[in-house]
Design a protein around this nucleic acid. Structure first.
Lengths: 347, 347
DNA sequence: TCACTGTGATTAAACGATTAACCAGAGTGA
DNA sequence: TCACTCTGGTTAATCGTTTAATCACAGTGA
């Protein structure tokens, strides 16, 4: 039992070379005073033996595990792959591992997930909070990715500006009546996006917002959104706050015989995986997740490196909002002056 | 520097109670010989102080980190959220943390990702291999989730049987000419699904397979699949090997004015997040990821617990294939005896 | 009375790395 | 020659936990 971990350790290298472990440690880390040639010999021999430092030993001594936690609100979120990929990439470039924790369920589950990570000794964590929750400080540095307008946010996409991009785009195409389709009114992100769209509207433009979760509370899950009726009411553009809702709108309209983009336009957010491959491909707004993750992780790592005491603090970064980029595809086009008649033709 | 980690440790509890650390350790782990009341007192006091064992200390002593690695072929895979969620859930129930590693890129990157995990001292790992790669044994137990027909597979959904479910369903609806739509012919999973569909076809039925990546190599990325032409050729059902391809097919057909399911049927695989919300909602086959993850993790944990030596071995489970479940929704219906005319009506 | 057996606890040695403190020897300036 | 500095290394303590080995002591049967 308790089999010793395989592979060489510092002391094996040391005895094998006739020097002390301290010297080997210094040579490999480049910290103490060791002569150039000895450093060379030690490095060479270590590589030869395939030496891999024990994270456990190091962690015990230094008090740092070299691991970051990643807390996700809802791992089933289709945006998650990109986030996790970006965070893992940035962290591993900085020499850190990433431990995931799913806060599926409510806010209590989120707190519990955070605690699990702390117990595992993460040096810090990146939290993507559940809608409208604020992180009560854990006992380690925390970087929050939500939206720039949330207090305590570290870095995030500029959802507001993203909204303006959409509004500009649609206004430029001549759309005047826009239906905004959101999922949940509690979401900080979605609220910012709505705010951005509204603020980008020009005089004479009109918008209305449809919140799906409310609709579903009345009409049941996966109910139709009744968009054909909205078209009849004169809406020519449907700006969804996520590509998932955009997809829902797009297929519902298509099924009703309404052509996109000839009759009406549909736009989304996030550039999710299906956006380029559906027909018509989806005009959307993409966030630069790699950049956001990079900023979050490096801010986190800086804090970890400098703060000697393990305190629970919200990390801040110099850049806290990253611009979103409009991706124009086929689902948006010039406003049809008379969409109703066009619809009639199709029937 | 090197601030001591906060919170109490064993020795603090021990001195505070006037006993030895060994006794405290024994009391908390329930291993040595400690009198009942002393155990009680120690437990109580530990809880009071909010004692959290140091994973680093434990890991160093026992040689086990209490962490599993999760290697994913392509984190951007839309199925990933479910997988990660299920694995994390199962692992955390077994007292393990989950370290993720993205093997984005080629097989070399996969190997590199595995090595990173080993260096971090994971006790074992779950690998979802890149298409058609076999895992060369790492220096820890490995559970592979691919497909039952792959050699070395630990546990997976029964993709073959899933294919049969689809074939049965379509056959029962009267479809005779089925177009199978896959992404990549190298994928073990997709090949099993194709095999299942073919094996489930009844006499007089005909199928053809369309591989998207080949088509894209010729016609460029995100090119149309030319499904309207296939409808004209008499295909009445389109069986995609993933919901992503099903979505692509569905929207392309809709855009061409072909009604689903009146004119033709479309089915997918995996029950991805959008499947229930698109119009028409997608008939698909779901895999029980929670069960698969549970089996994989418990097999892995068993191996870790029993094998004293840290060897690189492929873990096996008693149950190695988990049935897939057909989810019938709106996108599949009775075969239209004359789809071509129906299509003409719509134009 | 003596050897023997449990019971309940302690002692001390690991695990592997880091790092402050120390030490030997060579060179240097007064 | 002496005190001093610089260089290149060693010694030893430490992080927190686990666990084999040991010990004190009470009860027991011969």
């Amino acid at each position: 039992m308790a089999a010793p971990r395989p592979g060489p350790n510092l002391s094996r290298i040391a005895t094998s070379l006739g020097v002390s472990v301290a010297t080997v440690s210094n040579a490999l880390s480049g910290k103490g005073r060791v002569s150039g040639q000895l450093v060379e010999r030690i490095r060479e021999h270590a590589a030869e033996l395939g030496y891999v430092p024990s994270q456990a030993g190091r962690a015990l001594r230094t008090g740092r595990s070299g691991v970051l936690g990643l807390v996700l609100p809802d791992i089933a979120n289709p945006l998650f792959p990109k986030i996790a990929q970006a965070i893992e990439f940035a962290a591993s470039a900085a020499g850190y591992g990433v431990l995931i924790a799913d806060s599926r369920g409510d806010v209590a589950a989120q707190t519990e997930a955070i605690n699990r990570l702390v117990e595992r000794g993460v040096d810090g964590m990146v939290v993507i909070p559940r809608r409208a929750t604020r992180i009560s400080s854990a006992s380690c540095p925390v970087a929050v990715i939500d939206t720039p307008s949330t207090p305590g946010n570290t870095v995030a996409a500029d959802h507001w500006q993203g909204g303006r991009e959409i509004a500009d785009h649609l206004a430029g195409l001549g759309h005047r009546r826009i239906l905004i389709i959101g999922n949940n009114q509690e979401s900080n992100v979605q609220n910012d996006r709505v705010g951005g769209i509204r603020s980008g509207m020009r005089p004479g433009m009109h918008s209305e917002t449809l919140w799906i979760d409310r609709l579903e509370q009345e009409n049941g899950h996966d109910c139709p959104l009744g968009l054909a009726e909205k078209v009849r009411q004169g809406f020519t553009a449907f700006a969804a706050l996520s590509d998932l809702q955009a997809l829902r709108a797009l297929t519902e309209l298509q099924q009703a015989g309404i052509n996109i983009p000839t009759d009406v336009s549909v736009t989304g957010f996030d550039d999710l995986i299906w956006s380029p491959v559906v027909t018509p491909s989806l005009t959307t707004v993409r966030m630069d997740m790699d950049r956001i993750a990079g900023i979050a992780v490096s801010a986190l790592v800086d804090t970890i490196r400098t703060s000697s005491i393990r305190e629970g603090m919200l990390v801040t970064a110099e850049i806290e909002r990253v611009a979103m980029q409009l991706i124009v595809r086929q689902s948006s086009g010039p406003a049809n002056p008379a969409p109703k008649t066009s619809e009639m033709e199709n029937m």
